[in-house]
């Protein structure tokens, strides 16, 4: 069966076409297209602007995705869309498009939880069977493990998400949001050497990033006022790159620590990283060091699947659809708050 997936919970609109085979073979990605709304340096993206961007692009992308996949309307089994969580206005604009297609083409609708989309796509691509999942993006930070028909959240950020912390620091530094603020911080961090003292806020399996952002913002302001600051230990000049380096080393150590605690708790040695921040190579490297120390391994995907995309919504929606789930038109709403553990995972044992 073939499904079309529409994703637009944040500043990316993605459309994907996936095909599942009857004999349980790996799914085929027929097309996976995305367009990103990039805000100017120093600014974040506003919901109204993002929604406008999605409305402008959705039809073009659907046409292109169908053409690339080489499928016709008759081939499509169902239309999957992101029900939540995410920003209200962008979610709505994409839900409207999904409803329109459903009525126009007379296809069933499937509302998908964005986080479950990431997890299922990650499992499909990497082949990780029952991993502990670290889901890290601009809006979410969660450590998840599967148990009894639910993706259970073992730990999460108690305030802002880790990606939000990085994005906002990129704004402080006025660096480019293209292709993504986190990517540009990662490139800068590669040149950093001095580790500055930042708060380290892990509470059991939960963590907090707001205090770290405040501290690094203060350090950045001090550096701007006095660019001649030197590290008291090595005597080296402190640079913006050192700030990015310190921020990454600290927040990623926190993420790896809470993931390790969850792994010890559930007795698993596989870890899967999903979400936009999961593209970060330093995070992947640190996670790998931890997992290897526990005799396990880390699974990660590249930017096609880590960053929000339509194919993951198509995939997770199609799995649910094949298990008998669909969303009637009158219930095809979207919601900003939709916890990962609210979804009944009927398709797993």
């Amino acid at each position: 069966m073939i499904a079309l997936g529409l994703e637009g919970s944040a500043n990316k609109i993605g459309v994907g076409v996936i095909s599942h085979h009857a004999n349980g073979k790996a799914a085929s990605v027929l097309s996976n297209i995305r367009h990103t709304y990039v805000s100017p340096p120093g600014e974040g993206f506003l919901p109204k602007d993002v929604a406008k961007h999605h409305r402008i692009w959705v039809v073009t992308l659907v046409k292109e995705a169908m053409a690339v996949a080489g499928v016709t309307i008759a081939d499509i089994g169902c239309i999957c869309y992101t029900k939540g969580p995410g920003m209200g206005a962008p979610l709505q604009s994409v839900a409207v498009a999904a409803r329109m297609l459903s009525l126009l083409w007379d296809k069933d609708l499937v509302g998908v939880n964005h986080c479950v989309g990431h997890i299922e796509m990650g499992r499909e691509i990497t082949g990780a069977h029952n991993p502990v999942v670290l889901y890290v993006s601009g809006g979410n930070t969660q450590v998840i493990a599967y148990a009894e028909q639910r993706y259970r959240i073992f730990g999460e950020a108690l305030d802002i998400a880790v990606g939000n912390c990085l994005d906002r620091f990129a704004r402080t530094l006025q660096i480019s949001n293209d292709p993504a603020p986190g990517y540009n911080i990662e490139q800068l961090a590669k040149k950093g050497k001095v580790l500055l003292d930042l708060p380290y806020a892990v509470k059991g399996m939960d963590c907090s990033f707001a205090g770290i952002l405040t501290t690094i913002d203060i350090l950045a302001a001090e550096l701007k006022a006095n660019p001649e600051q030197r590290d008291p230990l090595s005597g080296e000049l402190i640079t913006t790159a050192d700030l990015c380096f310190s921020l990454q080393e600290t927040v990623y150590a926190m993420l790896v620590e809470i993931t390790e605690r969850a792994m010890a708790h559930v007795g698993s040695n596989q870890v899967l990283i999903v979400g936009g921040v999961g593209c970060n190579e330093r995070l992947q490297e640190m996670m790998d060091l931890m997992a290897r120390d526990r005799g396990g391994s880390v699974f990660a995907t590249d930017e096609r699947y880590c960053i929000d995309n339509g194919i993951m919504i198509a995939h997770a929606g199609l799995i649910a659809y094949e298990a008998g789930f669909k969303t009637p038109l009158e219930e095809s709403t979207c919601t900003q708050r939709f916890r990962t553990d609210e979804v009944l995972v009927s398709w797993r044992d």
């Binding site: 150590a253 996670m287 060091l289 120390d293």
Partner: peptide, 13 residues
């Protein structure tokens, strides 16, 4: 020691 952590951070923690 945790090899994934920066040595300075590791010692401090």
């Amino acid at each position: 020691r945790k090899p994934y952590r920066h040595p300075t951070l590791d010692t401090r923690l």
